[in-house]
Design a protein around this nucleic acid. Sequence first.
DNA 1: ATACCAATGTGTAACCTATACACAATTATA
DNA 2: TATAATTGTGTATAGGTTACACATTGGTAT
Lengths: 239, 239
Amino acid sequence: MGTALQRTIQQLRSEDREFFQIAISVDCVIFGFDKNELKVLLIKSDLEEFNNQWSLLGDLVRPDENLESASYRVLKDRTGLDDVYLEQVFTFGEVSRHPAGRVISTAYYSLINIKDHQPMLGDNELHWHPVNEINTLAFDHKTILDTCLQRLQSKIEEHPIVFNLLPEKFSLRELQNLYEAILGVKMDRRNFRKKFFLMNWLEDMNELEQDVPHRPGKLYRFNATRFSNGKKTQTPMPV
Amino acid sequence: MGTALQRTIQQLRSEDREFFQIAISVDCVIFGFDKNELKVLLIKSDLEEFNNQWSLLGDLVRPDENLESASYRVLKDRTGLDDVYLEQVFTFGEVSRHPAGRVISTAYYSLINIKDHQPMLGDNELHWHPVNEINTLAFDHKTILDTCLQRLQSKIEEHPIVFNLLPEKFSLRELQNLYEAILGVKMDRRNFRKKFFLMNWLEDMNELEQDVPHRPGKLYRFNATRFSNGKKTQTPMPV
DNA sequence: ATACCAATGTGTAACCTATACACAATTATA
DNA sequence: TATAATTGTGTATAGGTTACACATTGGTAT
């Protein structure tokens, strides 16, 4: 016997034409950080069913395009940015998730420095929304957003990826505000500083903040070399 | 304008027929535990390109079937088991990952009690393989296996799911052997016991192991109620 | 019956990490 | 020059993780 998977595509095309009735798309949760808020880039849906609702940025995957390449393409088209942090999170495949037909969608999130995003001409339907203020989205996009935010929250507990959301030089206060915005908690300033210095991820730029109405803080940048050297192999233990 | 995603499927069918040239499948990494080894259920590939190589169990997703339902169907067909632990891990979408055409595959892993698996008639091509002894698989299935194993390893550090791999009653030694097999490390027996008793997941059955050639250990079972009660909300902190 | 074997079952001290917490120093601004 | 706002810094406590050794139990062989 053998499953459908083990036959050739040629066989499938003749025998099982039904299998080619599913479209696959990518949806990108594009995170940014501005005014001490975590934000996400959304577009006005132009499907009638979701009139006036916002939705994530996505597109169908082309037959000759890798899944990840499709995400990068969406990002490039919508933000003009290459070389951004991108991570696959989950694939949403409910039969009825798209009102117009069967579309399975793989969700990615990406982290960009919001200042680098120059809205393209004709993209007046694109807007940054504070994540905290989003209650509903078109399709199942609220679920996708929540899933990606949870992944981001757990990811930053172990990996130095938040730097993608900041300019090259930043103060410790900005870094802490960012962690607090993503995790939704307040942290102790002294302990936060201690932890980061111990991890040895930061390089002191010997510069100070400009244009702040109080004593300026020192500026740092993320030093990836220190990170890869400083990784300690932790002994895995249950729970 | 608007992306392809925002048009209707009817429009897509006529305008963008190319988008329906991609098939979608699920592949299941079915883990079991036997003789102190973590094992995975594999099938002989019957594609010529992969003659005599083993592959994961998978199938194409049907147009009227949820993605997750497809995984449960594969599991039911191959193991006879319903109601198993199943978790989506990652979607593999390289253009050339399947030699016969464009197939995007979503990987799941599941945990079953290997003793419950009664091989079906006609399934003489199905075998349990020790995960440690698998070097190559058909397609990109070795990558899929590795990815699912990593997910399993990190998952069990925080969630009580390994019990799905054990019979209802088990000894602490069996439980520790299982953790050691999954994580690939040796652990201290005293600390292991201490930790599990502190977590309060285990219920003492007041029974002893049978047929062991030495002093028998006490038997326990997993108590999900205790788990959900005992969860403590941990303060999230960076790194 | 007895001796031996192989595993179970148990506690404590050292170490490390996480947390709570207060005051002096600096710069901008009025 | 005084005030306001924020930066920058250390220590003590608590909690969790790790390392580590010996008596007990039941099975097995003689």
